[in-house]
Every structure is written in structure tokens, then in C-alpha cells.
């Protein structure tokens, strides 16, 4: 293993949630407000997961008051408390960027049985 790998693996979490693009998740993110730290839940569909050791990130998309909102999280970031999986979606590609152009009934994702 090269030194670069060691540096990258150092901060990786050992227990990680297993979700894929298409799944609906609840991300419990820590938010710093002045002195206090609290947990904010962001619920939505995972539309992509980009891999790369400790740089792994995923994008969660939700519709908030009629407006599409996307948030990118670092998979191994200490600012993520936990990720709950709400439903497993059945999708045929790994990047669901097409959801951005769809709304209403068309933007639904079939659930995995």
C-alpha cells in the first residue's frame, strides 16, 4: 500500500451505511450554530454516489416547497452523524441526473421488492 493510500484510509469510517443511487435516505448532519451543535435531518433521494476512498461523496435531492434542493455530503465526514435508509429504489443507472428535469408523478422512483 502506498503512503497516499494510508493517508486516505486513515479517516475512513469503519461502519458505513449501505445505500445506492435511487434509495431514499435521511441524513443526520451536524450543524454548528455559534457555540452549539445540533443535528439537522435532510431527507431525499440519493441521485449519485462518487467513489474515491475518503473523498467519497453523495448527492441527496429533495423537493422543498416546490423547489428542487440538492445537497452534497462527504460520505466519511465527521459532520454526518448517521444515515438512515427509508426506502430502496429500483433504478437502472448510477447517476440519476435525469430527475432534475422531471417533476410530479414522473419523478417517482419504483421501490425495490
Amino acid at each position: 500500500m502506498t503512503i497516499m493510500d494510508l493517508v486516505e484510509k486513515e479517516q475512513m469510517k469503519s461502519e458505513v451505511p449501505d445505500f445506492k443511487a435511487g434509495d431514499t435516505v435521511k441524513v443526520h448532519a451536524k450543524v454548528q450554530e455559534g457555540e452549539k451543535q445540533r443535528i439537522q435531518v435532510f431527507e431525499g433521494v440519493v441521485i449519485c454516489k462518487k467513489k474515491g476512498a475518503n473523498r467519497t461523496s453523495f448527492t441527496v435531492r429533495k423537493i422543498s416547497y416546490g423547489l428542487g434542493v440538492e445537497r452534497i455530503f462527504f460520505f466519511h465526514s465527521p459532520m454526518i452523524d448517521k444515515v438512515d435508509i427509508v426506502t430502496r429504489g429500483r433504478v437502472r443507472r448510477s447517476r440519476l441526473y435525469y430527475l432534475r428535469k422531471l417533476k410530479g408523478k414522473k419523478a417517482r422512483i419504483r421501490e425495490k421488492r
Binding site: M4, N54, P78
Partner: peptide
Amino acid sequence: KLGMTQIYSEDG
């Protein structure tokens, strides 16, 4: 120089 990567600081 070995390369670039990303680390998380203490404040996340």
C-alpha cells in the same frame, strides 16, 4: 510531492 487528497479537520 506524493499527491493530493482530502482530510477532515477537527471541526469537521
